[in-house]
Design a protein around this nucleic acid. Structure first.
Lengths: 157, 157
DNA sequence: TATTGTTATACTCTATAACTATA
DNA sequence: TATAGTTATAGAGTATAACAATA
């Protein structure tokens, strides 16, 4: 029996709600619930700047790399290439990035930040930092540092 | 302009993949990526027992509460009542829970674990603990305890 | 033949609203 | 009128495959 026949991803979106006591020891549930809460908070911040979280991901990578083709961009962010096309369409339409031809390979389009995109980067950083510190506000400064360290360790592993 | 016109939730599912260096300082990205990795690992464990994560949530709460109506169950898990219907249909079909009439209010259906459902609980617990320890394996014992404590603190806030 | 970027499509999942039967 | 549970449906998002252009 496929357990997914009737049922599906449960969103937990909108999640500032209390957690049932019996689920508090469930690390994964609490972890996911917290992560979704963070994403919701960040989405709300970014919406004011006219974009959604994965668009920020693209821009951060371009800001680091300068220029990148769509396939590599998809790989870096683990987004499939068809979704990346739509993501870039939207981001280009907003004027934050542009596609240009690769002189060495006419199949390839190189993506880069526009001046408007570059100008947005500091605002993106502030939006993210604001969200992070709001989200982490129940923790002490030491705990916050420790949390960052542990997450980094997990994600690097 | 609605930034969601073209683009959508990006899944990051399947995420044992490396993280771009520029995104490592992005706490939320790493947090979400880790959480999705955990969910994927748990889903794979639970699939062998014939269920998906939110079904485990229902069963854990019923195991704690004994009996609960569908509306309260939806509230506890922050799943809307229509989705809960389908979730319970699947879980009942698998024989882990049953619905019975509430003698005091003929609109209400009380949900409870069956004997088969009760018998599954220890296996669910083992599946979860196995996933947790695998997921946390890059951390030391002390770090693991600290991680649990910090997540609990965040989710309780 | 293989790859880049694009489009089309089918499928999964969610959210809303409407419905029924009770209260 | 309001609530519990159900059903129907439209919309949001994802994954696949097929396609044109180029290598």
């Amino acid at each position: 029996m496929d357990p997914k026949k009737h049922v599906f991803h449960i969103s937990l979106e909108g999640t500032t709600l209390p957690t049932h006591e019996a689920l508090i020891p469930h690390f994964g549930y609490c972890f996911m619930k917290s992560a979704l809460k963070f994403r919701k908070m960040l989405s709300e911040e970014l919406a004011r700047l006219g974009l959604i979280p994965p668009q920020m991901g693209v821009m951060v990578i371009l800001s680091d790399a300068g220029t990148m083709n769509q396939i590599r961009l998809s790989e870096e962010l683990h987004i499939d290439k068809a979704t990346m096309v739509k993501l870039l369409d939207a981001t280009e339409e907003s004027g934050f990035v542009r596609r240009k031809a690769d002189p060495n390979d006419r199949r390839v389009k190189l993506v880069e930040l526009t001046a408007k995109g570059k100008a947005l980067m500091p605002k993106l950083k502030r939006a993210r930092e604001k969200t992070e510190s709001e989200f982490m506000s129940p923790l002490t400064k030491t705990e916050l540092k420790e949390m960052r360290r542990l997450i980094t360790k997990l994600v690097r592993a």
